[in-house]
Design a protein around this nucleic acid. Sequence first.
DNA 1: TGTACATCAGTGAACGCGCGTTCACTGATGTAC
DNA 2: TGTACATCAGTGAACGCGCGTTCACTGATGTAC
Lengths: 231, 231
Amino acid sequence: MATATSVRARVRAELVDEIKSAARRQLASEGASGLSLRAVAREVGLVSSAVYRYFPSRDDLLTALIIDAYNAVGLAAEAADASCRQSDIEKRWMATCRAIRKWSAANLQEYGLVYGTPVPEYRAPEDTIGPATRVTAVLIGIIRDGLELGLIADHSGEEPIPRVIRAELAPVREFFGGTVSDDLLIRSLVAWTHLFGAISFELFGHRVGTVASSDVFFDHEMRRIGHFVGF
Amino acid sequence: MATATSVRARVRAELVDEIKSAARRQLASEGASGLSLRAVAREVGLVSSAVYRYFPSRDDLLTALIIDAYNAVGLAAEAADASCRQSDIEKRWMATCRAIRKWSAANLQEYGLVYGTPVPEYRAPEDTIGPATRVTAVLIGIIRDGLELGLIADHSGEEPIPRVIRAELAPVREFFGGTVSDDLLIRSLVAWTHLFGAISFELFGHRVGTVASSDVFFDHEMRRIGHFVGF
DNA sequence: TGTACATCAGTGAACGCGCGTTCACTGATGTAC
DNA sequence: TGTACATCAGTGAACGCGCGTTCACTGATGTAC
């Protein structure tokens, strides 16, 4: 019976979620390298070998956590962006930055998993690429809208751009999918980089004793970067 | 005899170095979490318990590696800066950025150890603070010289600065040790953040398929950030 | 609707491994008189 | 210069632990006729 099958499927999905939650908790307290299948099994109340019914190996569990993390931060960014009036470009930028920072602070180890030191030996599979680009897509959407609405100042020509860079920017332009100057592409890359650079610096402890965990400073910083882009 | 004593001391120092080198090699191939005292001992040709004559615990060995990493990147920055004419502020900024990026790329896991995801449970002791500030000191030196020579454009007033931030900037100003506007302090923080943000993004794989490992792009990016500061 | 079979979830024991750290010890190297 | 003693470096065995993964198995749940 179709219904019966989907009962089993639902139970299965629930257990997959339970395992991932336990793994996330362990990640938060022990870090990526301390994530252990046996400990996860213990917490879920299964014998260690039973976990293999759900994840073929420890690395696959890690991969699932990475995908979830990208999706979670992507979702947070999308929601923040969507909550703003579409034409209020600067507000969208600020809301997105804040949402990403907030998620990152609340999920430090998950943030570290995707934006921190890569786990050696571990190679991220293709499935992570899609979720990884969600945040980028939000940022690009804001800039593209701003461009269409004529709300982004044109700074082209202020800084000479080396010829070699134009070729390197091709994939970025393609991802953009619209007509955009090299100059704006570069400024976008800088903004994107700075957003995560600031979050990492704060969360990884390099701003201790100064502007760490300061909402106001982060806001100010990101507003400036927004202006740098042309908002 | 004093000479004899120092022979023993020299041998000891050499072995400490050998242990650290082996640990660094292991760090490079296995990452911080894979660093094992037993494996290090094996590589040096000692029995595992003998390492305790040199480092009281695994964490102390890790601390030594962190201090060394900060010192190494600090030294690279200092050397690059010192190789430029003192009054050529922009060149000093660019040379320092390049040197830090170069060192980081060549010592990926060491970079990750100090600028990547913090190792959970591990608390960095006081001894790491001094070495950690070497890079910052170089950057501040460049800006201070630029200020004294009147080579940094004054952008004060272009962006309104929230009052709260002024207080938060106090420790940064103190570290600066001279007269400097809030605005320039903020721009300096942004530049410093961006330098490491760009390096992390590149080395941690978030620029794959675009401007990753592009010397020209990095140069261009940092030149722009330099102009943002006022060089 | 009832039965025979196939699929699936979970068990428990085992394999083989590596880890950090402690401890009592043997020699060798240095120190004091 | 020679001897008695103290310090140090390194050994080897042991403790107690946790890990990822495999495998043959028992029941329970679903499927096909």
